[in-house]
Design a protein around this nucleic acid. Structure first.
Lengths: 124, 124
DNA sequence: CTAACATGTGAATAATTGTTCATATGTACA
DNA sequence: TGTACATATGAACAATTATTCACATGTTAG
């Protein structure tokens, strides 16, 4: 009975210290917000296209076979998350990737999905 | 007039070759699905906790102050995306991170949000 | 100035996603 | 075998998010 109580006590302590080690709540929230931006097929396609070249809105729209409006809305999301930067040339706005983290995140993600599955994940 | 037509012709060609360079549509879809999994505060918190230690469902629930059911649902999502693996010990199920990509993705994401903002992003 | 074009954006709708509640499954132990 | 506990899951509801449509803004060329 005493051991049980002690165990509970210790668990509480260790969960508390674990919580301290974790990044602040706010940072984790921002991190989720960042990944949410990566978590949409249209935006992933845009990012993937910008890996290869700087592109204007209308080219991206043609490339993905989507409306200019839809692309523009998504580019705003990407801009706000600082995943892309833009450069205006006359009436045309060119977009490109903002920094190296994006490439790393994207490539690590690709590696993860291309990784062969272990037995514990097999469906049979 | 001719130059214009040639320019259009070239643009079509280059967009076409750009499309060829991009990963297959299906891979980009899977990639977005993967990032979607990272794109939720609860799941990010779970991942962050598992960075530090292997944990059982009830510990995670206590740690995050959420219901066992909510955590279990989210762990299933993480399992299906192969972000976590699990190990059963009696009636307790312990979860831990599955591979290194996850740590890299998580850390690159953190670096991105902690990065100081350039002028072009200033609000002013 | 006006017409034509590229892009941005608010509002509405459609689609997706997270949490809760109730309950099921499976294990341990008396 | 029955009770207690840990975890999983289906269905419903609530919340969030993407796309479309209509229109606004801003730029270039005539």
């Amino acid at each position: 009975m005493m051991n049980f109580a002690v165990a509970i006590f210790c668990m509480k302590i260790s969960l508390k210290s674990l919580k301290k080690k974790m990044p602040q709540e706010e940072k984790l929230y921002d991190l989720a917000e960042l990944f949410k931006v990566f978590g949409d097929t249209t935006r992933v396609k845009i990012i993937s296209a910008l890996f290869e070249a700087e592109l204007c809105v209308c080219d991206i729209a043609v490339l993905l076979g989507m409306s200019q409006s839809a692309i523009s809305h998504q580019l705003r999301v990407l801009r706000q998350a600082r995943l892309v930067k833009h450069r205006k040339e006359g009436k045309v706005v060119f977009y490109s990737l903002d920094d190296e983290h994006i490439k790393t995140i994207f490539n690590q993600g690709l590696e993860h999905i291309l990784e062969p599955r272990g037995f514990e994940h097999a469906v049979f």
